[in-house]
């Protein structure tokens, strides 16, 4: 019963949001405000339950794991940003977070996003792969080099450099085109999802 009611409310709110496509109206604004309010409440509860209760209160108060206290204190320091007098103290917590994050990320990103990607740009030998795979890799190499030349700004793009950067622009345009195509597909998929909800889930819930 409640699930069915929820589906009906979901359908009504979907239609209210769609009404913006005609023009702005109070129904749309109500649905928008409802979404913001419900989301804020949901996320507040989730974050409090998952972070403060599960990750701090239970281990420290319930199990006496005092190693988590420094982390908790740093977390509280961030909240001091709300007061002008003591907001400077929040910088210690942010500095710690930035340092830890950089330590986590920089070596791993260098290895996984740069070194491995550079290595995989080079074509395999004919002994390892088919002629088509090698040609494909060569094509990829041309694209990478010409795009890198396009982004080289220390010399005027004339002569050979200009022609290579033109090739780079062509590769970039193809990349942007593919990206745009995928974006259109993604947006249409979202619409399909809503329509499946309206035409399939809703009648099912109402037992048509």
């Amino acid at each position: 019963m409640w699930e069915q009611a929820g589906i009906v409310v979901g359908a009504l709110v979907t239609l209210a949001i769609f009404s913006l496509l005609y023009k702005d109206n109070p129904l749309y604004r109500f649905a928008e405000s409802l979404l913001v309010g419900v989301s804020a409440g949901y996320y507040l509860v989730q974050y409090c339950f998952s972070a403060i209760y599960r990750k701090f209160y239970i281990p420290v108060i319930g199990e006496g794991d005092l190693w988590l206290l420094p982390g908790g204190i740093l977390g509280l320091l961030i909240l001091l940003r709300l007061s002008r007098r003591v907001q400077w103290m929040s910088r210690y917590a942010i500095a710690f977070y930035v340092a830890a994050w950089s330590g986590y990320l920089i070596p791993s990103v260098l290895q996984e996003r740069i070194l491995i990607q550079i290595r995989s740009t080079f074509p395999p030998s004919l002994a390892e792969a088919s002629i088509w795979a090698v040609l494909g890799s060569l094509f990829l190499l041309v694209g990478v080099v010409s795009i890198l030349v396009y982004f080289f700004f220390s010399a005027e793009h004339r002569g050979a450099l200009g022609r290579i950067s033109q090739v780079g622009i062509t590769f970039l345009m193809v990349g942007f085109g593919a990206s745009f195509g995928y974006t259109v597909m993604g947006r249409v998929s979202l619409l399909i999802g809503r329509f499946q909800y309206l035409f399939q889930d809703l009648p099912q819930a109402l037992s048509f």
């Binding site: 990607q117 990349g175 990206s179 995928y182």
Partner: peptide, 15 residues
């Protein structure tokens, strides 16, 4: 779909 374009290099590299 939007994210898929950025994932291809990792697949191509075997990651």
């Amino acid at each position: 779909a939007i994210q898929a374009v950025l994932i291809y290099p990792y697949y191509q590299a075997g990651q």
